[in-house]
Lab assay of single mutants.
Amino acid sequence: KELVLVLYDYQEKSPRELTVKKGDILTLLNSTNKDWWKIEVNGRQGFVPAAYLKKL
């Protein structure tokens, strides 16, 4: 499993997105899109802007 660090808080703006908090370490599911990465948070899957995340 690949992990990502959340660099900035992000509030979901659609049902396909997820809310994340700065400092969270989460599972990366897909990073093929350069702008939006798919991650998992508490069993939910969704997208967060790639600029808000850093691969560990």
Rank of each mutant, 00 (worst) to 15 (best):
K1V: 14
K1P: 14
K1A: 11
K1H: 15
K1L: 13
K1I: 13
E2W: 09
E2N: 10
L3A: 06
L3T: 09
L3I: 11
L3P: 04
L3F: 13
L3V: 12
L3G: 03
V4D: 00
V4P: 00
L5Q: 07
L5R: 07
L5I: 12
L5S: 04
V6Y: 00
V6S: 02
L7E: 03
L7I: 09
L7H: 02
Y8I: 11
Y8M: 13
Y8L: 11
D9R: 03
D9N: 10
D9I: 01
D9W: 02
Y10G: 01
Y10D: 00
E12I: 12
E12L: 12
E12P: 13
E12T: 12
E12S: 15
E12M: 09
K13S: 14
K13D: 08
K13V: 08
K13I: 10
K13F: 05
S14Q: 09
S14A: 10
S14R: 12
S14Y: 13
S14H: 12
P15N: 13
P15Q: 10
P15W: 09
P15Y: 10
P15T: 09
R16P: 07
R16L: 13
R16S: 11
R16F: 12
R16I: 15
R16G: 14
R16T: 13
E17T: 08
E17M: 05
E17L: 04
E17W: 05
E17K: 08
E17H: 07
L18Y: 03
L18G: 03
L18R: 04
L18S: 05
T19H: 07
T19S: 15
T19N: 07
T19I: 04
T19W: 05
V20I: 10
V20G: 00
V20L: 07
V20E: 00
V20D: 00
K21C: 07
K21E: 07
K21T: 11
K21Y: 11
K21N: 10
K22N: 05
K22P: 03
K22S: 13
K22T: 08
K22E: 09
G23D: 06
G23A: 03
G23V: 00
D24P: 00
D24W: 10
D24I: 04
D24K: 04
I25R: 05
I25Q: 05
I25D: 00
I25L: 10
L26R: 08
L26G: 14
L26A: 15
L26E: 06
L26S: 09
L26I: 12
L26H: 15
L26P: 05
L26D: 01
L26K: 02
T27H: 15
T27Y: 14
L28Y: 02
L28G: 01
L28F: 04
L29D: 02
L29G: 02
L29Q: 04
L29H: 07
L29K: 05
L29S: 03
N30P: 04
N30I: 09
N30D: 13
N30T: 09
S31T: 08
S31H: 14
S31V: 08
T32G: 10
T32Q: 14
T32P: 03
N33Y: 08
N33D: 15
N33S: 13
K34C: 08
K34N: 13
K34V: 10
K34M: 10
K34G: 12
D35P: 02
D35H: 13
D35Y: 15
D35R: 14
D35G: 11
D35I: 13
W36L: 04
W36K: 03
W36F: 07
W36P: 01
W36G: 03
W36Y: 11
W37R: 00
W37D: 00
W37H: 02
W37M: 02
W37S: 02
W37N: 01
W37T: 02
K38Q: 12
K38G: 06
K38F: 15
K38Y: 15
K38W: 15
K38I: 15
K38E: 14
I39P: 00
I39T: 08
I39S: 03
I39K: 00
I39W: 00
I39N: 02
I39R: 00
I39H: 00
E40W: 06
E40N: 04
E40R: 05
E40I: 08
E40D: 08
E40V: 09
V41W: 13
V41Y: 12
V41T: 14
V41Q: 15
V41L: 14
N42L: 10
N42P: 08
N42S: 11
N42K: 12
N42W: 06
G43E: 09
G43V: 03
G43K: 08
G43A: 07
G43D: 08
G43M: 07
R44L: 12
R44E: 12
R44S: 10
R44C: 06
Q45M: 10
Q45F: 10
Q45G: 12
Q45E: 14
Q45A: 12
Q45H: 15
G46A: 06
G46N: 02
G46H: 05
G46V: 05
G46D: 02
F47N: 05
F47D: 04
F47P: 01
F47A: 03
V48I: 07
V48S: 01
V48K: 00
V48M: 05
P49R: 04
P49N: 03
P49H: 03
P49Y: 02
A50T: 08
A50G: 05
A50E: 03
A51T: 10
A51S: 14
A51E: 13
A51M: 09
A51Q: 13
Y52V: 15
Y52R: 04
Y52P: 01
Y52E: 01
Y52T: 08
Y52F: 14
Y52D: 02
Y52M: 09
L53E: 00
L53P: 00
L53S: 00
L53I: 04
K54N: 08
K54E: 14
K54Y: 08
K54W: 10
K54I: 15
K54D: 07
K54F: 09
K55A: 08
K55S: 07
K55Y: 12
K55G: 04
K55M: 14
K55W: 06
L56I: 15
L56T: 06
L56W: 10
L56C: 07
L56Y: 09
L56Q: 06
